[in-house]
Design a binder for these strands. Structure first.
Lengths: 111, 111
DNA sequence: GCGCGTCTCCTAGATAATCTACATATTAAG
DNA sequence: CTTAATATGTAGATTATCTAGGAGACGCGC
C-alpha cells in the first residue's frame, strides 16, 4: 500500500516546483530541500521524481535553465520561471484551490 | 495537458468513496452522483474510475457489497463500510489533511 | 409498439505521474 | 580514508485514472 508512504499528493509536483522557482532562481537539489523545509518535512520529493519533472517543465517552456555555481561553489543548474510558467502556476494554483475546497466539502459532509 | 480537465485530485478517490459510503449504504452509481452533488459539480468520477475503485476497496476488505433494490426499483449493488474501512477512512483523512496543509504552506510562501 | 434518455453494472487498454534503484562526480568532515 | 552531503541524471516498475467501449432494464413520449 504505497499511498501512505507517499511524500506527495499526486499531481501537485509541477505546481510546487513552479511555486518554489517563482520565489527566485534556484537549482534542482535546492528545490527539493526548499519544499521539504517550507512544508516542515511533510512533503518529500524523490530525486527520481524531481529531475524528470524539471525536464518536463523545461520542455513545456515553463522553466528556463542555466548552469551556474551553487552556494557551496559547485556546478548546479539554476532554474527560473518563464512568463508562460508564471501563467501556468496561476492556473494550477487556482485549479488546486477549487479541487481542494471540493474535497473538503466532501470530507465535512454531515454524518 | 490532462491535468486541467481532471475532475479529481489523484489519490483522493478511495478516500472520497469511503467517506460517501460512510454516510450510509449506497450503490455505485449513487456514489458518483453524491460526490458530484456535494462538491457542487467540481468533482466528477468517471465510471471507468469508479467501478474498478469499488472492486479494489472491496478486495481490501474496506467495503462490503450486497445486491439490493435502488430507489427506482432497479437492481443495484449497495456498498457499506466495514470496521477496517472506517479505520482506513480515518487514516486517509488525516493523511490528506497533513498533505493539503503542507501544500498550502508552499503556495502561501512569501513572494 | 418504438425510440430515447437515464439508470446501473462492467472491462480493456492507454496514459502519465511518481517511485525505487541505480549510476556518477565533487567536496567536507571525521 | 572513508563516509555523508551536495548535485545531476536514467531505466523500469507500479499504479491511478481516463477513454472508450459493451450490456440490460426501465420510463416516457409519440
Amino acid at each position: 500500500m504505497p499511498p501512505e508512504k507517499s511524500g506527495l499528493l499526486q499531481g501537485t509536483l509541477d505546481m510546487l516546483i513552479l511555486k518554489v522557482v517563482a520565489l527566485g532562481p534556484i537549482h534542482g537539489y535546492g528545490i527539493s530541500q526548499r519544499i521539504r523545509q517550507i512544508s516542515q518535512e511533510v512533503l518529500q520529493v524523490q530525486q527520481g521524481s524531481l529531475y524528470p519533472a524539471l525536464h518536463r517543465l523545461q520542455k513545456r517552456g515553463w522553466l528556463h535553465a542555466a548552469w551556474g555555481e551553487s552556494e557551496n561553489g559547485r556546478q548546479a543548474k539554476f532554474y527560473s520561471l518563464s512568463p508562460k510558467g508564471r501563467r501556468q502556476l496561476a492556473a494550477e494554483t487556482s485549479n488546486w484551490n477549487r479541487l481542494a475546497m471540493a474535497v473538503m466539502l466532501i470530507l465535512e459532509a454531515a454524518q
